[in-house]
């Protein structure tokens, strides 16, 4: 079936896009699953030529919703943490070194896959979406605008800013 071939073709890139946006593998798999089911439910009978833009519209919408929820959650977390800090004093773990690699250090080491991932993660969500859909997925400006739910002018702006940011980050730390 054609839809099987289409989803098999996009599933890995879709997962990677979600992972870059969320930074969490499990959440990314959930987002891709929701996007696939929603796409199949709503757009399976649409012409195949429209599938890429429609699928990524669903996926990007889910990713944007995830970001909204995460923002609200983080606000509450920060608020409660600040309240707890006032009550309990200094957190003893705050002075322990963070074992996770620092993005700037990763960039300095070499321009590798990890450095590219770190650079992509520094972009805003909209810049990241515009860059990945245009450059990696190969959608044109109109399709990207449809997938992102914005104007073509916005896509061009986000894409241009993304390319300049990536250029600056990756060229600056090139060995």
């Amino acid at each position: 079936m054609a839809i099987n071939h289409f989803l098999a073709d996009v599933e890995r890139r879709a997962f990677r896009m979600a992972q870059l946006a969320t930074g969490n593998a499990d959440d990314s798999l959930d987002l891709v699953q929701d996007a696939m089911l929603d796409f199949a439910r709503r757009y399976a009978l649409k012409p195949e030529g429209e599938w890429p833009a429609l699928f990524y519209r669903v996926l990007q919408s889910r990713i944007t919703d995830w970001h909204r929820r995460a923002t609200v959650r983080n606000r509450f977390r920060v608020w409660f943490r600040s309240r707890n800090d006032e009550d309990e004093g200094e957190d003893p773990f705050s002075k322990v070194a963070d074992p996770s690699p620092d993005p700037s250090r990763m960039l300095m080491s070499k321009v590798s896959g990890e450095a590219i991932t770190a650079a992509l993660r520094t972009l805003s969500l909209r810049q990241q979406q515009a860059f990945l859909l245009r450059s990696w997925e190969g959608l044109d400006v109109a399709q990207t605008a449809f997938a992102m739910g914005c104007s073509e002018g916005s896509v061009k702006t986000h894409y241009s800013r993304a390319v300049h940011s990536l250029q600056r980050l990756l060229e600056e730390y090139r060995p």
């Binding site: 079936m1 839809i3 099987n4 989803l7 098999a8 599933e11 890995r12 890139r13 997962f15 990677r16 593998a25 798999l29 891709v32 699953q33 696939m36 089911l37 796409f39 199949a40 321009v111 590798s112 896959g113 590219i116 991932t117 992509l120 990945l132 450059s135 990696w136 990536l166 990756l170």
Partner: peptide, 29 residues
């Protein structure tokens, strides 16, 4: 360079992730 690095990453995904993606795809199909 960036897209080549991303392609390399996707081709080296873990078997567990690929199996989960395959299950999702079959459900959607």
């Amino acid at each position: 360079r960036i897209t080549a690095a991303l392609d390399a990453e996707t081709s080296g995904m873990s078997r567990q992730t690929l199996e989960r993606l395959g299950t999702m795809r079959r459900n959607a199909v």
